[in-house]
Simulated assay, not measured.
Amino acid sequence: MSENKIKRIEEQKLRKFTQDVFLSMGCSEEDATLAADVLLKADLRGIDSHGVARLIGYVRLWDKGRINSRPTIRIVHETPSTATIDGDAGLGLVVAPFAMKIALEKAENVGSGWVSVKNSNHFGIAGYHALMAVNNDMIGMAMTNASPLVAPTFSKERMLGTNPICYTFPAGKYPPIVVDMATSTAANGKLEVAQRKNLSIPSGWVQDKNGADSRDAGELKEGGSLLPLGGDRDHGSHKGFGLSSAVDIFSAVLSGASYGPWAPPFVSFLDPADDQPGEGLGHFLGAWRVDGFRPVDDYKRNIDQWIDRFKKAERTNESQPVIIPGEPEELAERINRTEGIPLVDAVVEDLNSLAERFNIQAIQFS
């Protein structure tokens, strides 16, 4: 099948447009700027499944009264190294950075900080929040539960989200190492991208409502489910299921958010369950001071050596170098800042529908 056309737009134009949408939703100037920054970071890093393509989804939840555009985010439980945050149904794009700042402050004071979050919403890419740590010579971590779209190993019932987890490690002469991944075979956003581009998906990502393999990117809307990382038991799906379970427990059971099949969905074809056991979506964020373990300079010398050695690992194909986690996204960010952020026609149509609704300037390409 053919792909939609792709055009590039200047970062600042897209940033201004995104801010204007959040302002039209009633967000404060500060929150609109922050929320736009999280979405733009995804697009800049080539993670277009979690960038401005998601903007119409936040508006949809706001229309349904599920997003509070003026939240009072507060700490509801606290120790010197831990805290639990009530996001007051705010944008996860705003709530999660608030929580990460608390984690960083606690790490600065006592060596590490751990913050759980309840009563939040979709928080964009986990990498944005975890990367907040590296500029402070800290290791960062971020995870969240999500729309119940993933069936556990040996099941066809949707019980868990794609439940991403991210770790970020500062380096010396190199960009930080960023391990940012869904705990399912693929993020739901990748299916949405495939639908917008009129593409099939690889075998092993999705099963239909009867548990049979499917390559239809729209299968979830027909009652199908994503599979845990690994795909099936023979290829280690029980490990993906285990990782996803840990994210769900850290993010939601620990914080008091809703978990498992009760997690409030972001996708348009699911409605929240009536018997919610908790409040909203949950996140879990953490930070460790590197100098809590050894001098920073010593660590950076060794992490640079680690990167150097892995880059020199013997290749199976001489034309394909070993890729360090975070390297493709770093390259994409350099290119997209210079050449503009790529948008497919389907996303532009969604954005311009928001422009018409909120009476703001439509997307304009140079």
Rank of each mutant, 00 (worst) to 15 (best):
N210I: 10
K13H: 06
P325K: 13
R233T: 14
F169M: 09
D20Y: 04
F293G: 12
L281G: 08
E279W: 05
S268F: 10
S353R: 14
L354K: 05
K7N: 13
D232N: 14
D43P: 04
V348C: 02
K64Y: 03
E29I: 06
L270F: 08
L61A: 10
A186I: 07
V247F: 00
I56L: 12
G236Y: 00
G140V: 01
N121Q: 14
D31M: 02
G236P: 10
I85K: 02
E3M: 08
Q364W: 02
F22E: 06
Y299N: 14
I56M: 10
D350F: 01
N135L: 03
A313V: 13
V253A: 07
F169G: 08
K173N: 14
G230P: 14
N198H: 09
E219C: 05
F169W: 09
S366I: 09
A36N: 09
E29L: 07
G57W: 01
L93E: 13
C27I: 01
I75L: 04
S214Y: 02
N198D: 11
Q19S: 05
R8N: 08
P148V: 01
A217W: 00
G161A: 12
E333D: 13
R309A: 08
V247N: 01
P148Q: 06
G204W: 04
Q364F: 04
F17P: 10
P328H: 02
Q320L: 09
P80G: 04
P325A: 07
M159F: 12
H129R: 07
E279C: 11
G240V: 02
K300T: 10
K300L: 14
V110T: 11
S245K: 15
L131D: 10
L227F: 04
D234S: 08
G230V: 03
L131T: 09
I323M: 13
R74V: 04
L40G: 07
K118Q: 12
L351K: 03
K5N: 15
P71W: 00
M181W: 01
N109C: 09
V150M: 15
M141I: 02
L104Q: 08
I165P: 01
A142T: 12
A83Q: 01
G340N: 08
I323V: 15
A103F: 00
K312H: 13
I303V: 10
T185D: 12
D208N: 15
K311Y: 05
Q195D: 12
K190Y: 03
L91K: 07
D180S: 10
L331V: 13
A133H: 08
W306K: 05
I67C: 05
S49R: 06
S200C: 08
L285K: 02
S112Y: 08
S2L: 08
Q320S: 11
S120W: 02
P261T: 13
E11M: 06
E314Y: 07
I201R: 06
H77I: 02
S366M: 08
R301N: 08
Y174R: 15
R15C: 03
D137P: 06
T185E: 15
T162K: 12
